[in-house]
Amino acid sequence: MAEMTQITPFVNCRDLAAQRRFFEDMLGFTCGFQADNYAFLRRDNVAVRLLEVDFNLDDPARQQMVYIDVDDVDALWAELEPALSKLPEGRARAPFNQPYNQREFHVSDEGACLFLFGQGIEPSA
């Protein structure tokens, strides 16, 4: 039986250059390919496909969320926090525990996508 190895979301954006800089400068991704209105970026075993679109991303129906599982959410936050601290207020939320046994931090990109980085934690007593 064939094994699925990765899911790679398409992330819509208004400005491909700005969105690419966000992923590279804030989240540590590397661009493997770019053409016109499309870019493919990767970090470790995670990849995203950026797509510049001309429709209204302010429409809540067009907004997106992507969950990225990591093995050490606090270490990743410590790595990214110096860059993320330069974002406008409210665009990055420091690690916190969720009631569904995940520890997460959240980052809003340059457009209409919220990225949630998380790892499983033991249930609290």
Rank of each mutant, 00 (worst) to 15 (best):
T5I: 14
Q6H: 06
T8P: 05
P9I: 07
P9H: 07
V11N: 04
L16E: 05
A17I: 01
A18Q: 13
Q19K: 10
R21F: 01
F23V: 11
E24L: 09
G28S: 07
G32H: 10
F33T: 08
D36V: 08
N37T: 08
A39I: 01
F40P: 08
F40G: 12
F40T: 15
R42M: 14
R42Q: 15
R43I: 14
V48H: 09
L50M: 09
L50G: 05
F55V: 01
P60T: 13
R62H: 06
R62A: 04
Q63I: 01
Q63S: 02
M65D: 11
M65V: 10
V66E: 06
D69P: 12
W77T: 04
A78T: 11
E81L: 02
A83T: 09
L87S: 14
P88L: 12
P88A: 12
G90N: 08
G90H: 06
G90V: 11
A92V: 13
R93C: 00
A94P: 06
P99K: 06
Y100Q: 04
Y100L: 01
N101K: 06
N101P: 08
Q102C: 09
R103I: 10
H106V: 05
H106T: 05
S108P: 02
D109K: 00
G111W: 14
C113V: 11
F117W: 04
G118K: 05
Q119T: 10
G120K: 14
G120T: 15
G120M: 13
E122L: 14
S124Q: 08
A125M: 03
